[in-house]
Design a protein around this nucleic acid. Structure first.
Lengths: 229, 229
DNA sequence: GTTGTTTAATTTGTCGACAATATTGCTTGA
DNA sequence: TCAAGCAATATTGTCGACAAATTAAACAAC
């Protein structure tokens, strides 16, 4: 299982390694969302100088996992419902367009490969109807493939390099392993079909609905929770 | 005339100031696109230490104006036709969605203010049918207003904080003061109308066409240039 | 003359210390 | 008792120097 950011390149410098560790810690919630970051403390904990730590912090800021204010310091971003919904809106726009471009720009080989992947997921899913696996890794794999298929470096960087770290963070913190698996599988199939038909307009429409469905799913949950209280 | 990035906050630290100067230099082309960046040289020229310069470089990287490779160094991004078209595609997706959200989320006051702005531009335009003014500043103002009107912080940060620096760079480097002014004005009017009608779907559609029209305008120019050779 | 290797020089990455700014806690006065 | 101002503390921003890596150059071998 890959399941790793395709735009990620091997960590060579120590700042890279610290960045990755911090990234993990933030995404997994080991560093509480919204909490203040103490540079001296973190530098000591990871056994690096403050310069290297600051270099790592800069990269965290680049993917919107922390926020800095001049002469005040850094905080881990906090996960709010509004932020989550905003993120989905943004994904809808970007991944929708990426899907349209994928329909135009993917090679036949890439499309074939993606169809194979889906077929394999179908097998896994039938095998272990626990559904969890597909939703977790399969979903991310699928979306990555489509995004990369757009062959648009701008879109790829924005989505994979920045947005998806936040997406993962929200997924962890809100414990979202949503049980839309079977439905998601059908939606994925239809999207791939549209791509292989080179129907960009339909591909975008389907991807947008796919993401919007997840968003609405969340909105409903929220509404339900508020109704209970 | 404002015409400045609405997400920009006052430069307080010296790294901020160096960042702004470098940003200007890159956007305007004083630092050639694609050229290598020498940290020691720049640090000396701006009379700061390498640490502060690197801090500034980090921010330039954040808005995609330079690219860094570990142990190798930084380069100013180069302006290619492909990159420009990719940028327009991305804008189409993001600003389209921002426009839809603006139709849903803008306050009546904000809408009224935008209508006033357009009316004023109309006057200016009639006055000096030189057209240049409207295209330059008015266009940017209009787009900023719509983006901010989305009330979606994620979209605002992505577009205003990152994408638009690149947009400005391309505009400068390729000398694009495209003469679509009168047509653009009509398109702007229609978009505002859709927003004030709270018709998100139409607003998004119109904004996407508006941006796509600019892209196609460029594509045609390119095709023409290549035909000449 | 070209290729491959070794050495020198330059550049980037990292470090610890100092300066400037912000925060905290205390004192003082009303 | 509370507010305001001041002092002390801690944090961030900036600096110059050293270590590690890359690039350039010189040299040797084919």
């Amino acid at each position: 299982m890959l399941l790793q950011n395709p735009t990620k390149q091997a960590a060579v410098t120590t700042a890279d390694k610290v960045f990755e560790q911090l990234q993990h810690a933030i995404v997994e919630g080991d560093m509480a969302a919204g909490s203040k970051i103490s540079e001296p403390e973190l530098a000591k904990r990871y056994e690096v100088s403050r310069s290297t730590l600051r270099e790592a912090l800069n990269r965290l800021e680049k993917c919107h996992l922390i926020e800095r204010k001049a002469n005040v310091g850094s905080r881990v971003v906090d996960c709010t419902i509004e932020g989550l919904l905003e993120l989905y809106i943004t994904r809808e726009a970007l991944e929708g367009m990426a899907c349209r471009q994928a329909a135009l720009n993917m090679t036949d080989e890439e499309i074939a490969h993606m169809q194979d992947m889906l077929a394999q997921h179908a097998g896994d899913k039938a095998l272990q109807d626990g559904v969890a696996y597909y939703q977790e890794e399969g979903d991310v794999d699928f979306h990555y493939k489509v995004i990369l298929g757009s062959h648009n470096q701008q879109l790829i960087n924005l989505i994979c390099g920045q947005l998806y770290h936040l997406v993962r963070m929200y997924r962890c913190q809100f414990g979202m392993h949503s049980p839309r698996a079977t439905r998601a599988f059908t939606e994925h199939s239809n999207i791939i079909q549209a791509i292989s038909d080179r129907d960009g307009e339909l591909a975008e429409l389907l991807m947008r609905r796919h993401i919007a469905a997840s968003r609405k799913n969340i909105e409903n949950k929220i509404a339900l929770q508020q109704a209970e209280q």
